[in-house]
Design a protein around this nucleic acid. Structure first.
Ligand code: SF4
Ligand code: SF4
Lengths: 160, 160
DNA sequence: CCAAGTAGCACTATTTTGGTGCTATTTGAG
DNA sequence: CTCAAATAGCACCAAAATAGTGCTACTTGG
């Protein structure tokens, strides 16, 4: 329903936390405590990110996790794709390959195409945001109107 | 999780179906049959749209539903806002007023601002798409790349 | 009057999400 | 060598959201 799950948000928070701690392994405990996130759950999420090679892990005492890549070239899209929907791998999710294992309305659905374009639009947003962007506080402007106008002029006008 | 619910999709499909049938009342039965959507459920959704004044209803034999407004000035945003999340009215949903009745991480959450901007972006997409856009098949171009480039240049570059 | 509709609301079933338990393995430090 | 602190892996439970149904009342054209 158009929202990120807690798992995903926890994961993103962790990623952001790790941005300032390159060349160092940070434990799930530390991150969990820092943001009042259930440790165990966070741990599961981190393991997932690790399996997806977004993070490196070091076991044993003094162990923990560390970014496997520069924050500049880790897009929100990648992270969300991994974190959202634990079970079935979810790609750029069209109507066919989405979470609903292939919606059974496809044959007759009159809004299939527009919906897919909408999804592409969202996907675009995620793709253009890097972990670095997420991590840096807030660069400029009020922005709300900027978004609207930018879209009015170029993007959504053709979203049909 | 970044998807529209069935309810919402059913509602949108119905709205689209009604576009070509102005000045006429179409029954829930007809729409449901047309797209193989569970009648009863669709009926509930239609009633909701009706209560929100997006549709007009006519009871009794030959009754049904009809658009209460021109398709040109009914935005996807409005419809989604009504259909998504049956329980709590959901506005432009910031972290405070979202479905999670006020996330308890707000105080410490490092990604609050970026996430809100992302949501604003999505909201923008929805606002710029009218029911007319949804209903008209597919006007032009491949578009995928268009979206990306448009966003790269204007929108998401500042999404941080 | 009656069949075909909507109105309203409560209720059940299914799926998804959030969160926990437990056991094994790794590893730095005393 | 031993122990404490970590991750790895996986199954499992609990709560919430979604999908869908039942039933009753009211409306209206034929
Ligand atoms: S858009 Fe139509 S087809 Fe694609 S998922 Fe939603 S309902 Fe199924
Ligand atoms: S962004 Fe941070 S604050 Fe806003 S909802 Fe997600 S977690 Fe809670």
């Amino acid at each position: 329903m158009l929202q990120l799950t807690k798992r995903t948000e926890y994961g993103l928070i962790a990623l952001v936390h790790l941005v300032d701690r390159r060349d160092e392994f940070v434990s799930a405990r530390e991150i969990g405590d820092a943001y009042h996130v259930p440790r165990r759950l966070l741990a599961e999420v981190l393991k997932e990110l690790c399996r997806a090679d977004l993070l490196l892990s070091q076991r044993g005492a003094n162990g923990g996790y560390s970014l496997a890549r520069e924050p500049e070239n880790l897009t929100l899209a990648e992270a969300v794709q991994i974190l959202e929907a634990t079970p079935s791998a979810k790609d750029g999710s069209t109507c066919e390959t989405s979470a609903w294992s292939s919606c059974d309305l496809i044959s007759t659905c009159p809004i299939k195409t527009p919906i897919e374009r909408l999804r592409a639009g969202i996907w675009g947003l995620l793709n253009q945001t890097t972990l670095r962007d997420l991590a840096t506080p807030a660069p400029v402007n009020p922005l709300g109107e900027l978004i609207e106008s930018a879209q009015a002029s170029s993007l959504s006008a053709r979203l049909s």
